[in-house]
Amino acid sequence: MYDFLLQLTITSCSIFILMKKIVKKHPLAIRWFHWINFPVLTIMIWSGLLIYWANDVYQIKVGNTVIYKFFPKGLYNALNVPFHLAKGMSFHFAFAWLFIINGILYVAYTIFSGEWRYLFPNRKSFKEAWQVLLHDLHIKKYEPPQQKYNAAQRIAYTAIIFMGMGSVLTGLAIYKPVQFSRATFLCGGYEAARVEHFILTIGYVLFFLIHIFQVIKTGWNNFQAMISGLEVIKTEKQIPVNEQA
């Protein structure tokens, strides 16, 4: 079923009709996983910050100059971070369960439903992702053809899953370094695991900022599809004109 007559163009032998087509975009399960993950990951990052504060030794340095210290006092105070280590740990080790279970279900769903085909990068994705980037930055006009997600999205949405797995692995390596000594070894040791866990978290925050920016830029139709599952697609339909008529 179509909404007709948005635009008519008559040529010598056919009519092009621009039509509105409503299609199912995001399966229900994926919408649930997405919207559950959002607050759970937010709580994990917040409680992680409460924990990190107790030994906030990371900084970006060039030579002897500190470029950025994780984190400035103002940020801590604004978020009421100081002296909440125990609280941070109690939230972190409870909500970690939700984060892990939701993550496992999401990955299992994408595998069994076949959705992974639209999410996993293919041979062309890495080349195309570069073209998408140039297009998005308004450097090039050309936009590579895409299916449900463009190449850059495929890489981002797959990378974030591996980052999630990395957070679980590095998290377990810090949480129980004696019992999960293999995980700690794989991460390059206890302190290395803590650094990696931290960097992955910074990665989520950057992902989130770009994600939000892109969602706002792409507009309402795309955003609401993550809630309703439906997206409105505009297509042209060619109707030949019967010369005898």
């Binding site: 079923m1 409503i22 299609v23 997206e231």
Partner: peptide, 10 residues
């Protein structure tokens, strides 16, 4: 979208 998704009415 035309191949992989179901269309629904307005």
């Amino acid at each position: 979208f035309s191949k992989r998704t179901k269309e629904i009415s307005n």
